[in-house]
Design a binder for these strands. Structure first.
Lengths: 229, 229
DNA sequence: CCTTTTCTTAAACGGTCGTTTGAATAATAA
DNA sequence: TTATTATTCAAACGACCGTTTAAGAAAAGG
């Protein structure tokens, strides 16, 4: 296992690497991690299995790198939006809806590629959280720990009277709602007998923000009412 | 492939069948569908692979039967609670919170077994929706189509002014929230640095009901406000 | 009892998997 | 150019997969 640790990269090698990466993204997205073989990825990338192992070391390495490659820009955009909102509010606590906008909008942007809405990618992200593969947990911790800490700080500022425990629970629900909605997005069409469309990603994100914000606020209020009774 | 179509079942055969079923549930629950082999299931059940194939025909057949065996009673309880609530309300439309209680409480009951909370099973249900295996979609349609139709009828009655499309979207979100929360339940503990507990399933369900109800209502109100503007 | 059906078992089948090897090719440096 | 390194490739390795076969054990029916 001799992963290419970015020494001197031949132009052609970079091309190959990217071809493997995007082939992997397409295949893992539509068929899951266990349902795709390295041979299929290599064939779709126009190369062979040894090349994929040369660049990524293993199947796990390929999956991790693919997720990182896609998720890191989304998280950067989330932090950018949050910082922008903070700057715009002039030091005052942010409303929950603003916070959740910063959390959810970048997902929609990422899923609205140049070739039309890529709602399959949203499935992949949602699924990557429910797959039992233990190596994914480390990736998620590395990719999301800092992000969730920062968002928790903002929620605390906007709800100074709320109990820490309740904030954790409800941010957890917001994230779970987001992941569940992303992962099960496709099911909406047959479920609604075609009445609802899964192609309009932006509409879903907008609805999701309202839903998550309403759920969060209702739950926090409920906890407050219980404490006061 | 000669599935046992319930002709005459020897007592010992029933025992074997149940041992395979519960071994499968434990293993698939902790390691996912693709991560478990028929040999492992058979070994844990104290028998061999051919026996498992004799009783369930194939790995898919075993998974389907395991899911059906667990989910069917939950759905029956959901319908019972809904009918009970309707009888209690005397023909008047049900409040969303009551409807979602009927939808969510039975999950908590199922996950609170005699041997302590079985939060792993909730993961399995949540995961079964995000696994890309196509054969699962048929199972889900068969297991959940009638149920969701009935719950939609009740939501329509409680929101006669709402657009059909909005009701579908928001019931979809409620289900997505439930599945996402179930599937990612375990992550709450490390995420909250141990502050929140994942052992108290009932607490989670109660919080989930409030969250889902709040999100649903907020989103419906938002749609109404948009239509009126 | 004997016959027939139901169930269990060890062993094998054909195939595919992730990974590795070693030689050939392309790029870079001298 | 030549020496060195970086990359690609066909082929193979060893392991494990889901499934089937065929024969025997257990149970049921007569």
């Amino acid at each position: 296992m001799m992963v290419k640790e970015s020494n001197k990269a031949t132009p052609r090698a970079i091309v190959t690497r990217n071809r493997i990466l995007s082939a992997a993204e397409h295949l893992f997205t539509t068929r899951g991690f266990a349902g795709v073989t390295m041979r299929e990825v290599a064939r779709r990338a126009g190369t062979n299995v040894a090349s994929a192992h040369y660049h990524f070391g293993s199947k796990e390495g390929l999956i991790i790198e693919m997720l990182r490659h896609r998720i890191a820009p989304i998280n950067a955009e989330r932090l950018r939006l949050l910082k922008e909102a903070k700057h715009h509010s002039g030091g005052k606590p942010l409303k929950p809806l603003i916070i959740f906008k910063a959390l959810l909008l970048p997902i929609g942007q990422a899923a609205t590629g140049s070739t039309g809405p890529d709602s399959r990618f949203m499935q992949l992200v949602g699924r990557s959280f429910t797959e039992p593969a233990s190596f994914l947990e480390k990736v998620h911790r590395r990719l999301f720990r800092e992000l969730s800490d920062i968002f928790m700080v903002e929620l605390r500022r906007s709800h100074p009277a709320a109990r820490e425990e309740d904030l954790f629970w409800n941010l957890h629900f917001v994230v779970a709602t987001m992941l569940g909605a992303l992962a099960n997005h496709r099911r909406l069409v047959p479920f609604s007998s075609g009445l609802c469309n899964d192609q309009n990603v932006d509409e879903m994100i907008q609805r999701l923000i309202v839903f998550a914000g309403g759920g969060f606020t209702a739950s926090i209020e409920n906890a407050k009412a219980k404490a006061n009774q």
